[in-house]
Design a binder for these strands. Structure first.
Length: 115
DNA sequence: CGATTGACGTACG
DNA sequence: TCGTACGCCAATC
């Protein structure tokens, strides 16, 4: 494809789309799943380019390791990310996900068990 | 081509 | 337990 970006970006989008409804994941978990344990920041970079991607990438389900909406500023409206999460049943308090461990979805774990 | 930045994470005090 | 410092890796200036 002429729109061929780094395969890393495409791979990130794919994993993010696999995040179930009402669940969230972390940049480090995705990076580690892709083999880029030290590339957590690169996942964030991919998210920055995920805007307008088709199919849409649920970037609002991707948070940092503490469950904080670190990228809420990149959604245009700061509350947009929180609104999307609450719409899916995820409780957000003080820009932080309540019960983050309960809604946390680890690709390394879920995808590994199925394989 | 070199320096700075950044949707992160871990280590240290 | 909380706050600060440093490290990674790629993109941008």
């Amino acid at each position: 494809m002429s729109t061929k970006q780094s395969d890393f970006f495409n791979d990130v989008y794919e994993v993010v789309r696999l995040i179930p409804y009402g669940r969230v994941s972390s940049y480090g978990a995705i990076a580690r799943y892709l083999g880029a344990t030290r590339g957590a920041r690169m996942v964030g970079y991919a998210m920055n380019a995920a805007h307008g991607q088709i199919p849409a990438v649920p970037a609002h389900r991707v948070l940092n390791r503490i469950g904080m909406l670190s990228g809420k500023h990149h959604f245009g409206d700061e509350l947009a990310m929180q609104q999307l999460l609450e719409m899916e049943g995820v409780v957000v308090k003080n820009d932080q996900v309540v019960g983050f461990e309960k809604v946390f979805w680890d690709p390394n774990l879920e995808l590994n068990l199925e394989k």
